[in-house]
Design a protein around this nucleic acid. Structure first.
Lengths: 218, 218
DNA sequence: CCGAGGTCAGTGACTAGGTCACACAGCGGC
DNA sequence: GCCGCTGTGTGACCTAGTCACTGACCTCGG
């Protein structure tokens, strides 16, 4: 068994006994892209350390509209899972693997035990948890008070990550922002009219990132 | 010093040593109604057990619009505070005493120490924390996908708590829901037109709670 | 190669909700 | 009574979401 804990920078401070516990009690798991890892109402069984891939956590409304709450990436853990573990409630959001994923799962009893025995582990868990709450509050602020064009611009820049072509559908962007496909289509059309982007089926090219940046940062 | 820990049902399971620690390290504090307990950017210094009164935690947008995130009531603790304590970040929301409050404050070092030494204390903290996350997710869902008339109806019933007259302004209701005063005024007018409520300056009377209930529960 | 069916995007008409500007009513203090 | 403050009402306008429908492109099977 390789010592995957070394890949989690924040576990550096972990004492050797706790590290050993973590290694013996956790088990590797993987899932292909598209797997629904949990949905609303599922019970929560293990604490997850994500080693490879990306998980999108979202809320789905009755009318079918979706909104992405946050993403879990390499070396992170899932806050909703943590919340469920700690409160003992079922999941109240949905988690989907966006790419193939590779993770380590730590079952509840071992999780509780480690939480009790290791200050460093507690610190890791809490720090991750606390900073995600901040993200959720920010999301509430944006959804409540933000403009959709601004949020869309931000979203495009985030997804592009320096690249200037990104492959995605209007529907996906809408689900990301909790908006409707038509609204996104119209906004993108407007961006194109202004010469900021070029639209294509299933993809879109950034022509003027600076303009987007300026809109996003307003 | 009276043993206020007895007032917190969930602290029942606390062992005597931890209880004694809690008592010696915490100090009483109070504040009159309207006090701003913390705002965005304030550092967080203590874990709070609210003994008396009510705290509203809200986000304030740039344009001055507000939205209530949740309330802390008798015998509860403040999740954002917990999050800040655990992650070490500053507050990213604002807390206002809605009534005069009486609380016990537990400074960070003692908080961390108790978290380390007492499983029961950990359980208390986590359980409170986890269930509040669920509230936040629900709020995101409502703000993103919910209808304002429905949310307003729910809000009226909650505030009324069985009474049929409640004293509040349209502005306050708007701040509660993260909406605009005019929107709330118009909705209330519509409710009145339907004979569900009667409007008065600074107050409002519920005439047909059942109708509101039905709208709220749809 | 062609057509069927699926996915993706575009569009007009309409509704819900938020913004702005302003009028006016109730109410307390002088 | 008059002033000034707070709370409410309202019309015009704008942004965002909904609904219904069209057409473009893509793949796959015949």
């Amino acid at each position: 068994m390789s010592d995957w804990t070394r890949d989690f920078a924040i576990l550096d401070a972990l004492d050797e006994a706790s590290r050993a516990q973590l290694l013996t009690h956790s088990h590797a798991m993987q899932a292909p892209a598209g797997t629904v890892l949990f949905r609303e109402g599922s019970p929560c069984q293990a604490y997850l350390f994500l080693q490879e891939g990306q998980i999108r956590v979202q809320k789905v409304g009755e009318n079918g509209r979706e909104i992405t709450l946050y993403r879990v990436e390499n070396g992170q853990t899932c806050i909703v899972t943590t919340a469920c573990l700690m409160s003992g409630n079922d999941y109240d959001a949905e988690g989907v693997a966006e790419t193939a994923i590779q993770a380590q799962a730590l079952p509840i009893p071992a999780f509780r035990q480690l939480l009790a025995s290791s200050a460093a582990f507690r610190d890791f868990v809490f720090r991750a948890y606390g900073s995600r709450i901040a993200d959720l509050l920010l999301l509430i602020e944006e959804v409540s008070f933000g403009r959709i064009d601004q949020r869309l611009a931000t979203c495009l820049l985030q997804r592009a990550r320096g690249q200037n072509v990104l492959s995605t559908t209007h529907q996906e962007l809408a689900a990301e922002l909790g908006s409707a496909r038509e609204v996104i289509s119209r906004q993108l059309k407007e961006f194109e009219r202004r010469g900021w982007i070029r639209l294509g089926r299933g993809q879109l090219q950034l022509l003027d990132s600076d303009a987007l940046q300026q809109l996003a940062g307003k």
